[in-house]
Amino acid sequence: MAQPVIQRKLANVQVKEFYHDLFVDTQVKHFELMCTPYVKVGAADRVVDVGGGCGFFAAAVTGLLGIPTRVIDLDDTSIEQCKKLGIEAIQSDALQPPVFGDESVVCFNLILHHLVGPTDKSTAQLQGTALEAWRNQPVHLFVNEYIYDSYISNLSGKLIYVITSSRILSSVGNLVARIIPSLKANTFGVGVRFRATAEWLDFFESRGWRVTAHTRGEEEFVSKARRLLFIKSCRRDSFVLQARNMAHS
Protein backbone atom coordinates (compact mmCIF):
# COMPACT_ATOMS: atom_id res chain seq x y z
CA MET A 1 0.00 0.00 0.00
CA ALA A 2 1.35 3.42 -0.97
CA GLN A 3 2.25 5.68 1.92
CA PRO A 4 0.16 8.87 2.24
CA VAL A 5 1.88 12.06 1.14
CA ILE A 6 2.81 14.29 4.06
CA GLN A 7 2.07 17.96 3.47
CA ARG A 8 4.75 20.44 4.50
CA LYS A 9 3.05 23.29 6.35
CA LEU A 10 4.01 26.84 7.23
CA ALA A 11 4.82 27.70 10.83
CA ASN A 12 2.37 29.95 12.70
CA VAL A 13 4.70 32.94 12.35
CA GLN A 14 4.73 32.40 8.57
CA VAL A 15 0.94 32.03 8.39
CA LYS A 16 0.54 35.42 10.10
CA GLU A 17 2.15 37.10 7.09
CA PHE A 18 -0.97 36.20 5.10
CA TYR A 19 -3.41 38.06 7.38
CA HIS A 20 -4.16 40.71 4.76
CA ASP A 21 -6.68 41.56 2.04
CA LEU A 22 -4.24 42.80 -0.60
CA PHE A 23 -5.61 40.76 -3.49
CA VAL A 24 -9.28 40.48 -2.56
CA ASP A 25 -10.54 43.23 -4.90
CA THR A 26 -9.14 41.49 -7.97
CA GLN A 27 -10.33 38.08 -6.83
CA VAL A 28 -13.87 39.34 -6.31
CA LYS A 29 -13.88 41.08 -9.72
CA HIS A 30 -12.77 37.87 -11.41
CA PHE A 31 -15.29 35.84 -9.41
CA GLU A 32 -18.15 38.17 -10.33
CA LEU A 33 -17.15 38.11 -14.00
CA MET A 34 -16.68 34.35 -14.22
CA CYS A 35 -18.90 32.68 -11.61
CA THR A 36 -22.15 34.60 -11.16
CA PRO A 37 -23.93 32.37 -13.73
CA TYR A 38 -23.43 29.46 -11.32
CA VAL A 39 -24.87 31.06 -8.17
CA LYS A 40 -28.34 32.30 -7.33
CA VAL A 41 -28.47 35.51 -5.32
CA GLY A 42 -30.73 35.01 -2.32
CA ALA A 43 -30.56 31.21 -2.53
CA ALA A 44 -29.35 29.04 0.35
CA ASP A 45 -26.44 27.59 -1.63
CA ARG A 46 -22.98 28.50 -0.41
CA VAL A 47 -19.85 29.74 -2.11
CA VAL A 48 -17.04 27.98 -0.26
CA ASP A 49 -13.57 29.51 0.10
CA VAL A 50 -11.08 26.72 0.81
CA GLY A 51 -8.10 28.03 2.75
CA GLY A 52 -10.06 31.28 3.03
CA GLY A 53 -7.99 32.65 5.90
CA CYS A 54 -9.49 35.58 7.78
CA GLY A 55 -12.55 35.66 5.53
CA PHE A 56 -11.83 38.84 3.57
CA PHE A 57 -12.83 37.32 0.22
CA ALA A 58 -15.88 35.59 1.68
CA ALA A 59 -17.05 38.78 3.39
CA ALA A 60 -16.65 40.73 0.15
CA VAL A 61 -18.61 38.17 -1.89
CA THR A 62 -21.41 38.23 0.67
CA GLY A 63 -21.39 42.01 1.12
CA LEU A 64 -21.04 43.04 -2.51
CA LEU A 65 -22.87 40.24 -4.30
CA GLY A 66 -25.31 39.07 -1.61
CA ILE A 67 -24.13 35.46 -1.83
CA PRO A 68 -23.87 33.28 1.33
CA THR A 69 -20.33 32.04 1.92
CA ARG A 70 -18.44 29.52 4.01
CA VAL A 71 -14.71 29.45 4.83
CA ILE A 72 -12.68 26.29 5.38
CA ASP A 73 -9.31 26.83 7.02
CA LEU A 74 -6.99 25.14 9.52
CA ASP A 75 -5.73 28.26 11.27
CA ASP A 76 -7.32 29.09 14.66
CA THR A 77 -6.87 32.85 14.35
CA SER A 78 -8.36 32.90 10.86
CA ILE A 79 -11.44 30.98 11.99
CA GLU A 80 -11.96 33.42 14.88
CA GLN A 81 -11.62 36.40 12.55
CA CYS A 82 -14.18 34.92 10.13
CA LYS A 83 -16.71 34.55 12.91
CA LYS A 84 -16.14 38.16 13.96
CA LEU A 85 -17.02 39.16 10.39
CA GLY A 86 -20.18 37.05 10.57
CA ILE A 87 -18.83 34.49 8.10
CA GLU A 88 -19.57 30.80 8.58
CA ALA A 89 -16.21 29.13 9.18
CA ILE A 90 -15.18 25.51 9.65
CA GLN A 91 -11.76 24.43 10.85
CA SER A 92 -10.71 21.67 8.48
CA ASP A 93 -8.08 20.55 5.99
CA ALA A 94 -8.24 21.48 2.30
CA LEU A 95 -7.35 17.87 1.48
CA GLN A 96 -10.31 16.41 3.39
CA PRO A 97 -12.90 19.19 3.45
CA PRO A 98 -16.40 18.78 4.85
CA VAL A 99 -18.96 18.54 2.06
CA PHE A 100 -22.58 19.44 2.88
CA GLY A 101 -24.13 19.36 -0.57
CA ASP A 102 -25.18 23.02 -0.52
CA GLU A 103 -22.06 24.27 -2.34
CA SER A 104 -22.46 26.00 -5.71
CA VAL A 105 -18.91 27.29 -6.31
CA VAL A 106 -15.77 26.21 -4.45
CA CYS A 107 -12.91 28.73 -4.44
CA PHE A 108 -9.16 28.24 -4.16
CA ASN A 109 -7.68 31.72 -3.82
CA LEU A 110 -3.86 31.59 -3.92
CA ILE A 111 -3.95 28.33 -1.97
CA LEU A 112 -2.92 25.51 -4.31
CA HIS A 113 0.70 26.71 -4.53
CA HIS A 114 0.98 26.27 -0.74
CA LEU A 115 0.06 22.58 -0.86
CA VAL A 116 3.57 21.19 -1.06
CA GLY A 117 5.21 17.89 -0.25
CA PRO A 118 8.82 16.69 -0.03
CA THR A 119 9.07 16.20 -3.82
CA ASP A 120 7.62 17.88 -6.89
CA LYS A 121 5.65 14.71 -7.67
CA SER A 122 4.13 14.55 -4.20
CA THR A 123 3.35 18.27 -4.41
CA ALA A 124 1.33 17.73 -7.59
CA GLN A 125 -0.44 14.85 -5.85
CA LEU A 126 -1.44 17.10 -2.94
CA GLN A 127 -2.69 19.86 -5.22
CA GLY A 128 -4.68 17.31 -7.20
CA THR A 129 -6.16 15.83 -4.02
CA ALA A 130 -7.52 19.23 -2.96
CA LEU A 131 -9.43 19.47 -6.23
CA GLU A 132 -10.43 15.80 -6.26
CA ALA A 133 -12.37 16.22 -3.01
CA TRP A 134 -15.06 18.07 -5.00
CA ARG A 135 -15.17 15.93 -8.14
CA ASN A 136 -18.45 14.16 -7.41
CA GLN A 137 -20.29 17.32 -6.37
CA PRO A 138 -22.36 19.44 -8.82
CA VAL A 139 -20.08 22.45 -8.34
CA HIS A 140 -17.74 24.67 -10.32
CA LEU A 141 -14.27 25.44 -9.01
CA PHE A 142 -12.88 28.97 -9.03
CA VAL A 143 -9.08 29.00 -8.89
CA ASN A 144 -7.09 32.22 -8.50
CA GLU A 145 -3.38 31.48 -8.79
CA TYR A 146 -0.01 33.09 -9.26
CA ILE A 147 1.37 32.63 -12.73
CA TYR A 148 5.12 32.48 -13.23
CA ASP A 149 5.72 32.20 -16.96
CA SER A 150 9.36 31.50 -17.72
CA TYR A 151 11.83 32.35 -20.45
CA ILE A 152 12.68 28.64 -20.32
CA SER A 153 9.73 26.25 -20.41
CA ASN A 154 8.11 26.02 -16.93
CA LEU A 155 11.50 26.47 -15.23
CA SER A 156 10.81 29.41 -12.90
CA GLY A 157 8.19 27.70 -10.74
CA LYS A 158 10.37 24.60 -10.42
CA LEU A 159 13.41 26.66 -9.40
CA ILE A 160 11.43 28.55 -6.77
CA TYR A 161 10.14 25.26 -5.36
CA VAL A 162 13.64 23.75 -5.17
CA ILE A 163 15.04 26.83 -3.39
CA THR A 164 12.20 27.38 -0.92
CA SER A 165 11.77 23.69 -0.03
CA SER A 166 15.48 23.17 0.71
CA ARG A 167 16.55 24.23 4.19
CA ILE A 168 20.11 24.84 3.01
CA LEU A 169 19.13 26.88 -0.04
CA SER A 170 16.49 28.71 2.02
CA SER A 171 19.14 29.73 4.54
CA VAL A 172 21.24 31.11 1.70
CA GLY A 173 18.13 32.80 0.27
CA ASN A 174 17.41 34.49 3.59
CA LEU A 175 20.93 35.92 3.66
CA VAL A 176 20.69 37.15 0.07
CA ALA A 177 17.25 38.68 0.75
CA ARG A 178 18.78 40.94 3.42
CA ILE A 179 20.74 42.59 0.62
CA ILE A 180 18.14 42.16 -2.15
CA PRO A 181 14.67 42.43 -0.52
CA SER A 182 12.84 41.45 -3.73
CA LEU A 183 14.18 37.91 -3.28
CA LYS A 184 12.55 37.49 0.13
CA ALA A 185 10.14 34.57 0.43
CA ASN A 186 7.85 33.91 3.39
CA THR A 187 7.87 30.22 2.49
CA PHE A 188 11.61 29.62 2.94
CA GLY A 189 12.25 26.21 4.52
CA VAL A 190 8.80 24.83 3.64
CA GLY A 191 8.35 25.34 -0.08
CA VAL A 192 5.96 26.87 -2.58
CA ARG A 193 5.02 25.55 -6.03
CA PHE A 194 4.07 28.13 -8.62
CA ARG A 195 3.34 27.16 -12.21
CA ALA A 196 3.26 28.74 -15.68
CA THR A 197 -0.05 29.26 -17.49
CA ALA A 198 0.37 26.24 -19.74
CA GLU A 199 1.53 24.20 -16.77
CA TRP A 200 -1.63 24.99 -14.75
CA LEU A 201 -3.84 24.26 -17.76
CA ASP A 202 -2.12 20.90 -18.31
CA PHE A 203 -2.35 20.17 -14.59
CA PHE A 204 -6.11 20.76 -14.46
CA GLU A 205 -6.78 18.82 -17.66
CA SER A 206 -4.62 15.87 -16.63
CA ARG A 207 -6.66 15.47 -13.46
CA GLY A 208 -9.99 15.39 -15.21
CA TRP A 209 -11.06 19.03 -14.98
CA ARG A 210 -12.30 21.01 -17.95
CA VAL A 211 -11.21 24.66 -17.95
CA THR A 212 -14.36 26.55 -18.94
CA ALA A 213 -12.99 30.08 -18.42
CA HIS A 214 -9.65 31.81 -17.90
CA THR A 215 -9.09 35.46 -16.98
CA ARG A 216 -5.59 36.92 -17.22
CA GLY A 217 -4.51 39.17 -14.37
CA GLU A 218 -2.47 42.35 -14.54
CA GLU A 219 1.26 42.06 -14.98
CA GLU A 220 3.33 42.56 -11.83
CA PHE A 221 6.76 44.11 -11.69
CA VAL A 222 9.63 41.62 -11.91
CA SER A 223 12.92 42.98 -10.59
CA LYS A 224 16.25 42.33 -12.31
CA ALA A 225 17.24 40.09 -9.40
CA ARG A 226 14.12 37.95 -9.76
CA ARG A 227 14.70 37.65 -13.49
CA LEU A 228 17.72 35.54 -12.54
CA LEU A 229 15.07 32.90 -11.89
CA PHE A 230 14.13 33.17 -15.61
CA ILE A 231 10.78 34.82 -14.76
CA LYS A 232 9.23 36.27 -17.92
CA SER A 233 5.83 37.21 -16.47
CA CYS A 234 4.30 37.30 -13.00
CA ARG A 235 0.59 37.86 -12.42
CA ARG A 236 -2.54 36.39 -10.81
CA ASP A 237 -4.89 34.60 -13.20
CA SER A 238 -8.27 33.02 -12.51
CA PHE A 239 -9.74 29.79 -13.87
CA VAL A 240 -13.15 28.14 -13.69
CA LEU A 241 -13.09 24.35 -13.66
CA GLN A 242 -15.77 21.74 -14.16
CA ALA A 243 -15.28 18.02 -13.59
CA ARG A 244 -15.44 16.15 -16.89
CA ASN A 245 -17.91 13.64 -15.50
CA MET A 246 -20.26 16.55 -14.62
CA ALA A 247 -19.90 18.40 -17.93
CA HIS A 248 -23.15 17.11 -19.40
CA SER A 249 -25.17 16.77 -16.20
Rank of each mutant, 00 (worst) to 15 (best):
A2Q: 15
A2T: 13
Q3W: 06
Q7N: 02
R8I: 10
K9P: 01
L10S: 06
N12Q: 11
V13K: 15
Q14D: 10
V15A: 08
E17I: 03
E17P: 04
E17G: 05
D25T: 12
K29L: 14
H30F: 14
H30E: 09
E32G: 02
M34E: 02
A43P: 04
V47A: 09
D49W: 06
C54L: 09
F56Q: 12
F57R: 01
A59N: 08
A60R: 09
T62V: 00
T62E: 02
G63Q: 13
L64C: 10
L65N: 03
G66S: 10
I67S: 06
I67Q: 05
P68D: 11
I72A: 01
I72D: 01
D73G: 00
D75H: 09
D76W: 01
E80M: 07
Q91T: 05
V99S: 00
F100Q: 08
G101W: 03
V105D: 05
L110S: 02
I111G: 04
H114D: 11
H114I: 07
L115D: 14
P118K: 06
A124Y: 08
T129D: 07
A133F: 00
Q137H: 03
L141W: 03
N144L: 07
N144T: 04
Y146C: 07
Y161Q: 11
S166R: 14
S166C: 15
S166W: 12
R167V: 02
S170E: 08
G173V: 09
N174F: 13
V176R: 05
V176A: 14
I180N: 02
L183T: 10
T187K: 04
G189N: 08
G191R: 06
V192D: 13
T197K: 12
W200Q: 06
W200K: 13
R210D: 10
T212V: 15
A213T: 11
A213Y: 08
T215C: 06
G217W: 01
E218F: 09
E219V: 03
E220A: 01
E220P: 01
E220W: 00
V222I: 15
S223H: 14
A225H: 05
R227A: 10
F230S: 13
K232Q: 14
K232E: 08
S233V: 11
S233E: 12
D237Y: 01
D237E: 00
H248E: 15
S249T: 15
